[in-house]
């Protein structure tokens, strides 16, 4: 409990990070509570089209061109955005850490091979690759998550490798080799905990990127057609933007806030996980 408290004490020194955390917690609450607060299909037609926000209590954020409740859709959209953000960043971290750790720890020919592969992936433009992948894999949440992970693991791999290279030759790691500790144990139990802070920070940034990427794909109509997402809402409203800005503007604002919130949180994590850097 004590280290957690200390962590929180360091974290809350960064005001922006506390604000970011509030945004993220709000979005999470929206995602979790959506089915209880608004049971039924969020995309059913609930009233007249083009009701502006803040006009009636029934539709606090108004309705879109088909008369669907924007407020309700926003809650359901949070589910998709957060799910994609969390799942894609976790898959990304898993792939990136594994490849980076192997390349950094073993080095030599295996390391060189893995890093050439990583560089190859980096030369392909992200969004292009994601578009191609989603098209091939059919539009579904899973394929969106996989596509995002495949285009973003390279950064994690490079950072992890650099960190592993740094720790590989440190005396405490050599001491473990000398005592006969198997390599996998050294990687997992000795080096990894030291490498974790930058990876946590990076993973949170990737989560923000994943939310953006999902929105872009949905905006282009390549998202999961069976679920509401903020990107899809923004995309659907773009044709009526001149008359009813709020149809795409409000979900757009939600994307902005979520990405900002996560970035602020990762900033705070960075400070709190690297106490020495802060004191300087």
């Amino acid at each position: 409990m004590e280290p957690l408290l200390q962590f929180w004490r360091r974290y809350r020194q960064n005001r922006g990070a506390v604000f970011g955390l509030a945004i993220v917690l709000t979005a999470s609450a929206m995602a979790l509570l959506a089915p209880w607060l608004f049971p039924g299909d969020p995309r059913r037609i609930a009233g007249a089209p083009y009701i502006a926000p803040f006009v009636t209590w029934q539709f606090p954020l108004g309705t879109d061109q088909l008369g669907r409740d924007i407020f309700v859709q926003l809650f359901y959209g949070a589910r998709v955005s957060l799910l994609v953000g969390i799942a894609a960043s976790l898959v990304t971290a898993l792939i990136g850490c594994t490849i980076g750790a192997l390349a950094g720890f073993y080095g030599g020919r295996l390391g060189a091979l893995l890093m050439r592969g990583t560089e190859m992936f980096q030369t392909i433009p992200d969004i292009m690759l994601a578009l191609v992948l989603v098209t091939i894999l059919q539009a579904s949440l899973l394929s969106v998550i996989i596509s995002i992970a495949i285009v973003s693991w390279t950064t994690v791999a490079r950072v992890t490798r650099a960190e592993f290279l740094k720790f590989r030759s440190q005396d405490f790691v050599l001491a473990c080799v000398v005592m006969g500790m198997p390599s996998w144990r050294i990687i997992v139990s000795q080096i990894f905990p030291n490498v974790l802070p930058p990876i946590v920070v990076m993973t949170s940034i990737i989560a923000a990127g994943a939310i953006l990427a999902e929105s872009s794909l949905s905006f282009l109509g390549l998202g999961d057609p069976n679920s509401v997402s903020w990107g899809m809402m923004t995309g659907a409203g773009r044709s009526v933007f001149r008359n009813a800005w709020y149809v795409s503007g409000i979900p757009g604002l939600a994307i902005l806030m979520a990405v900002l919130g996560i970035n602020l949180v990762s900033d705070g994590l960075n400070d709190a996980l690297n106490p020495r850097r802060r004191e300087r």
């Binding site: 405490f172 050599l174 500790m181 000795q190 905990p193 030291n194």
Partner: peptide, 30 residues
């Protein structure tokens, strides 16, 4: 590996020779 226990090492730098994220008890239990 089986022969490693016979020869051990003490390092120069007392800072980098201990894992900063492990408690002393854990380091010695390893």
């Amino acid at each position: 590996r089986p022969l490693r226990r016979d020869v051990q090492m003490v390092f120069q730098d007392p800072f980098s020779s201990l894992n900063p994220r492990s408690r002393i008890g854990r380091i010695l239990e390893e």
